[in-house]
């Protein structure tokens, strides 16, 4: 088992919280893991990414090679496209559809759609809307994470346990809301696959 995952978004959107949940689940499964993050100047309002590698064998590089990525998880549509050269032929792209516009030359909605349409294996969802339905806009990341479950190589129950453990200290209500968000995301991906 090997999954090379690129997480992307804009500084402040919270891609690392997604990485934390997957990482915890991977450790539960006794898998090897490496996760390269971006800190410092490159964070503030700029593009951010994290390379997350999970495998049942020891992992050499902290970075994922071109054409070898199995899954792009992005909280922002243009940012999801930034890492296309890394995606492998059978790889999946799971992205939020809501743009984060903080530059003047942000591409048009039409161009974004056209480019995303070129990707054969993808799930594009408005995680913010679904998060609000689940109880709070703050669980948007977990909705997106839910939508990646069919592609992660880690079972749903382990992911649920990981979410539970990470949010446990914030109380049962928060745990339930996040589990609901995870389920909502998963449901969309499952529907998409049918």
């Amino acid at each position: 088992m090997k999954k090379d995952i690129i997480l992307s978004g804009v500084g402040g959107q919270g891609i690392l919280s997604i990485a934390t949940v997957i990482g915890k689940a991977a450790l539960k499964k006794g898998l090897y893991m490496k996760q390269a993050e971006v800190h410092g100047m490159s964070q503030r309002g700029g593009d951010v990414q994290s390379n997350l590698r999970i495998s049942d064998k020891p992992i050499a590089s902290d970075l994922i090679a071109t054409g070898k990525c199995d899954l792009i998880i992005s909280l922002e549509p243009m940012e999801s496209l930034r890492y296309l050269p890394y995606l492998n032929k059978e790889g999946w792209l799971v992205t939020n559809s809501t743009p984060f516009i903080n530059i003047d030359n942000y591409p048009s909605e039409e161009d974004l759609k056209k480019e995303l349409d070129k990707v054969p294996h993808k799930v594009v969802i408005n995680v913010d809307d679904i998060a609000k339905e689940a109880g709070s806009a703050r669980v948007a990341n977990i909705v997106l994470l839910g939508a990646t479950i069919p592609f992660l190589g880690i079972d749903y129950e382990t992911m649920r346990q990981s979410v539970r453990e990470i949010f446990e200290r914030k109380g049962e209500a928060i745990v339930e809301m996040n589990l609901k968000a995870l389920a909502a995301g998963k449901e969309i991906a499952d529907k998409h696959l049918q």
Partner: peptide
């Protein structure tokens, strides 16, 4: 496998 998308712009920190 996939070409770089031509519409992706630089997003500098601010």
């Amino acid at each position: 496998e996939f070409p770089a998308s031509p519409i992706v712009e630089v997003r500098p920190p601010a």
